[in-house]
Nucleic acid binder design. Structure first.
Length: 445
RNA sequence: UCCGUAGUAGCUCAAUUGGCAGAGCAAUCGGCUGUUAACCGAUCGGUUCUUGGUUCAAGUCCAAGCUACGGAGCCA
């Protein structure tokens, strides 16, 4: 019995007879010669069926294979520069072929399809080359983030999905019935992270978060994954160092491990190679001034209106894009107006109208991929903010406790996985960065 | 929620002034010993998003609705 091998490894078996198991990605024939492009999840290899080298019944089976039929193929590996595949260059001369199932008419043909159709068939679309490449890069991005944090002394500490109260705004919560009481799906793990950081020093959580926002854009999901580090005894400047280290490591790992996938999705690799420390760090004041200056230079009126901004306003996506385009790598914008940021962010000493917050804007119009801040560690100020926001003191008693028992300056941030994947892969929508996107109008499949 | 665009075969699209519902791909059958989204011949394939209206006649015109896509706000 021939050895079962992964298609990605077949080059190691040149001249040997192996067994591969997978699905027919495509088939073309020339009569007594059939080319079967087989994928097995690890890669794709061309398997060649010659009528005179096979059992006649098995050849007929090969000749009739439909797209996505499942088969087990035994044959000899040989180098052939004409052979397509992933990685390609080697093919298998079929000696025998066992049909597991003859697939019914497969909905996703090699021709182009519309978004709605593809999303309705997401469970099958995942089998396509482009999706295969993107989701492998996603896995590497997540692994690289965790590897880097682990190596820097962070501890993974999980935070709950069911929560009794809001993390940020109360308008974007999913309410669920918790044995007769209201509970909410987590929109951040941050408050728990703060408690955990007081126990373990440097922590992070990684999991899904939920926001019931009625936003329908290329960068929003209802359910998205976020990685959130939190560090005790940390300043905003030190936080930026950490973010910079994390992001450059992640991009480096993708470049290191996924040249093949980046090529498949036609990503401009040079743009990624430019992602090196240090990233520019500009204040909100400076950012507003730059945007206003840019606006005066803008020729056409619509463009001018788009990036219009007054001090005190948060950036919309046109402003974020315009700012990011001034740099060839991500840019930090710090000290946002306190009024547009969350209740737990520390005011700047002597200038309480701005706070110790920092966003990281990705290049090429991908917008904010990280939001972070120094957290308020003074009990009375935090309590005052909670009251003023009308959040209800009861649900936050435990959070205020952290400021009673050995409070320390601390900071943390959240990085959105899907936006990061979209940026690194150069995609125009986050829906392809997650296996099953949850969007405003979609929860199927 | 607001603004804009679209909905025709399984998929991607066409259909002139309101006048017989079309093509490519997929599927099925046949042919072909090096295909790269192969090619050649044939077959199969329709609630033209829904409801109502105008008309001798509606895919096309009118009204309402539904769905999707793109953008905005908000955010990671």
């Amino acid at each position: 019995m021939a050895k079962i091998v992964k298609i990605k490894d077949i080059a190691d078996y040149a001249g040997q007879v192996v067994r591969v198991r997978g699905w027919v990605y495509s088939r073309t024939g020339k009569g007594r010669l059939q080319f079967i492009l087989l994928r097995d999840g690890s890669g794709q290899a061309q398997c060649v069926a010659f009528k005179r080298e096979m059992d006649p019944a098995e050849f007929e089976t090969a000749r009739a294979l439909t797209q996505e039929s499942s088969v087990i193929i035994t044959g000899a590996v040989r180098a052939d520069e004409r052979a397509p595949g992933i990685p390609g260059g080697y093919e298998i001369g079929i000696q025998s072929l066992e049909l597991v199932q003859q697939a019914l008419e497969y909905p996703i043909s090699p021709k182009e399809h519309g978004t709605e159709f593809l999303m309705n068939n997401r469970h099958l679309w995942l089998r396509s080359n482009r999706q295969w490449a993107i989701l492998r890069i996603r896995a590497t991005i997540i692994k690289a983030m965790r590897d880097w944090l682990d190596s820097e002394g962070f501890l993974l500490v999980d935070t709950p999905i069911f929560t009794p109260a809001a993390g940020e705004e109360t308008t974007t919560l999913f309410e669920v019935d918790y044995f007769g009481e209201a509970a909410f799906l987590a929109q951040t793990g941050q408050l728990y992270n703060e408690a955990n950081s007081m126990a373990f020093g440097k922590v992070y959580c990684f999991g899904p978060t939920f926001r019931a926002e009625k936003s329908k854009t290329r960068r929003h999901l209802i359910e998205f994954w976020m990685l959130e580090p939190e560090i005790a005894f940390c300043s905003l400047e030190e936080l930026m160092d950490i973010e910079e280290g994390l992001v450059t490591y992640v991009v480096g790992q993708v470049l290191d491990k996924h040249q093949q996938e980046l090529k498949m999705i036609e990503r401009d690799v040079q743009k990624l190679e430019a992602i090196q420390a240090p990233f520019a760090r500009i204040s909100y004041d400076d950012a507003v001034a730059r945007l206003q200056g840019l606006r005066q230079q803008a020729d056409d009126l619509p463009a001018r209106e788009e990036i219009a901004i007054e001090w005190g306003e948060d950036f919309g996506s046109p402003q974020e894009t315009a700012l990011a385009e001034m740099f060839d790598r991500p840019v930090f914008v710090y000290h946002y107006p306190t009024a547009v940021k969350a209740f737990y962010m520390t005011p700047v000493a002597g200038r309480p109208e701005v706070c110790r917050s920092v966003d990281l804007l990705a290049p090429e119009g991908y917008g904010e991929i990280i939001g972070g801040s120094e957290r308020i560690h003074d009990h009375d100020l935090l309590a005052k903010n909670i009251d003023e926001m009308g959040l209800g003191r009861e649900a936050y008693e435990w959070y205020l406790d952290l400021r009673k028992y050995g409070t320390v300056p601390h900071a943390g941030f959240g990085i959105g996985i899907e936006r990061t994947v979209a940026w690194i892969c150069g995609l125009n929508h986050v829906r392809e960065t997650i296996p099953y996107a949850r969007l405003l109008n979609r929860k199927y499949p």
